[in-house]
Simulated scan of single mutants.
Amino acid sequence: MPSRDPLPPLSCLRAFEAAARNASFTQAGSELHLTQSAISRQIKRLEGDLGRPLFERHHDGLRMTPAGEHYFRIVQGVLRELRDETARLRRRSGERQLTLASSPTIASIWLARQLPDFQHAHPDIEIRILTVEDPHRLDLAEFDLGIYYHVPNEVDPPGLNAEAIFDHEEVAAVCSPVYLERQGGVRDPSDLLAHHTLMVVEDHYHDWLTWETWYRELAFDWHPPAHTLRANSFQLLMNATLAGQGVTLGWTRLLAAELDQGTLVRAMPASLPSRGRLSLLMPRHRHLSEPMRAFREWVLSPSA
Rank of each mutant, 00 (worst) to 15 (best):
M1N: 02
P6L: 00
P9K: 13
C12F: 12
R14F: 04
F16Q: 03
A20L: 08
N22R: 15
T26F: 13
T26C: 09
T26G: 08
Q27F: 11
S30Q: 15
L32K: 14
H33Y: 12
A38C: 05
I39N: 07
I43S: 06
R45H: 11
L50M: 11
E56H: 09
D60F: 14
D60K: 10
G61H: 11
L62T: 05
L62W: 02
L62Q: 06
L62C: 08
R63F: 10
A67W: 14
R73G: 05
V75W: 01
Q76P: 00
Q76V: 00
Q76K: 13
L82V: 06
D84G: 07
E85P: 00
E85Q: 05
T86E: 02
A87V: 08
R92H: 11
S93P: 03
L98D: 09
S103V: 06
I109V: 10
W110L: 12
Q114W: 00
F118S: 09
Q119V: 14
A121V: 02
H122P: 07
I125M: 01
E126T: 14
V132Y: 04
D134Y: 07
R137C: 04
R137N: 11
D139V: 11
D139L: 06
D139R: 04
L140D: 01
E142A: 14
D144T: 00
D144F: 00
L145Q: 05
G146W: 05
G146T: 05
P152C: 11
V155W: 04
P157M: 08
P158G: 00
L160S: 02
A162D: 07
E163I: 04
I165C: 09
H168A: 14
E169S: 14
V171S: 01
A172E: 12
A173P: 10
S176L: 05
V178T: 13
G184C: 04
G184S: 07
G185C: 06
D191A: 06
D191T: 01
L193A: 04
L193T: 02
V201N: 15
E202A: 15
D203F: 14
H204C: 11
L209D: 09
R216H: 08
L218W: 00
D221V: 03
A226F: 05
L229A: 07
A231E: 12
N232K: 05
L236T: 11
L236E: 11
N239A: 13
A240G: 00
A240M: 07
L242T: 06
A243R: 15
G246V: 12
V247S: 10
V247K: 13
T248N: 13
L264R: 03
V265M: 08
V265D: 09
A267M: 10
P273K: 09
P273Y: 04
S274N: 02
R277E: 08
L278P: 05
S279L: 02
R286E: 02
M292F: 07
M292A: 12
R293H: 09
E297N: 07
S301R: 04
S301H: 14
S301T: 05
S303P: 01
